[in-house]
Structures are given as C-alpha cells and as structure tokens.
Amino acid sequence: MGRHVWQRIAPALVLAALLWTPVNAGSLEEATDFVAQRAERLLDIMNRPPGSERRDSFARWIASTVDHDGMANRALGRYLEVATDAELRAYTDAFHNYIIVTYERRLATFSGYKLKVERSRALNESDIVVRTTIGSPDGARTIVDFRVSNDNGGQWRLTDFAIEGLSMVKTLRDEFAGVIRRDGIDGLTALIESNVSESAL
C-alpha cells in the first residue's frame, strides 16, 4: 500500500478512534457487579412466599433495574416504526404491568436457586452481556445471560435476559408480532391489559 493511501485514510482512522468509545475493563467490572447485586436481590425476592408483598418488591426491583421502556420498544420490533405516540404510550404502560405480573410468576420457579457469575463480555459499544449460572437445590445448573447497558444518566440497566439461550425480548417480539398483525397495536395493548387483569386475580 502506497504512502499516499495512508495519508488519505489516517485522518479517518484518527476520527474513528476519537468517536469510538469501546467498552473498557472498568465498564465490564461495573456491569458484572451490577448484575451480581441485582440478580442476588431478585433471587432473594423470589424466595419469599407468593402474595402482594412479593409482587410489590418485584415491581420495585423492576423499576430500579430494568429499562422497561426500551424493552417495550424492542419487543415491538419493526412495528415501532409505525406506532403513533398515543399507541406507544398506552402500550408501554400495559407492557410495564405485564412484565411485573407475568415475570413475577415465571421467575418464582427459581426460588431456592443460587447464583454464580461466570464471565462478562462486550456485545457492542454500549451493551455488555454477563453470563451467570444458577443452581437449583437438587444441583441442576441453568445458564442465564443478562444484557445490560448504561443509560444516559450513567446508570446500568437490564435490557434483556436469556435463559439457556432463550431471549425474553426476542420471545415477546415474536409473540406480539402476530397479535399486532391481526389486531393492531391497540389490540395488543387491550390483550395485554386483559391478560394482566386475569393474572392479577
């Protein structure tokens, strides 16, 4: 490669280096600590008996840990492009209640499990995946990957998780797409609200 080529691409390389802020070792450590602490807290909540006290604790855990608006948007997938502001607001509110009610019950199956943080890696410039294993009382181990990113305020937030490779957001997106196609985003919101009402009984 001739010298003139380097002269042409050097400024672009310098600019790219300045603009690109890679996830550094400090961020990995912070993200890992965040996941370890919040996951331990979650398992602690799930060890409690079912009832309104556990649900309230889980709702507080969601509020302090999960980027639920971002998660709601990503669960819409390509339908996010066509959603109106009013549709999005109603859907996001319903989604928030849905993950509290549904995942409180689903995650309760991990009552009595013990957490072990395995390793962490950068998924892209802003997101980190922390791999953990949780062990059941009878010794079976389940791999749980937590995807976290740093929000604008410098706070780490959980944006997705995958149990044995099955992503929560991907599953919801696939599930919601068929309902939206049939009944629209408002139809999905109505279905989520009715589901939450039934589940909360």
Binding site: R105, G165, T171, D174, E175, A177
Partner: peptide
C-alpha cells in the same frame, strides 16, 4: 403462564433453541 399467544411463544422458543 401469562402468554399472550402461546402458539407464537412456542414457535419462537423452538427456533431459538434449535439455533
């Protein structure tokens, strides 16, 4: 539990697991 559309959930989980 709480699935909005269990058919679509099963389809998604099958594909993710298979991948």
């Amino acid at each position: 539990q709480g699935s909005i559309d269990f058919y679509a959930t099963a389809r998604s989980l099958y594909r993710q697991n298979r991948a």
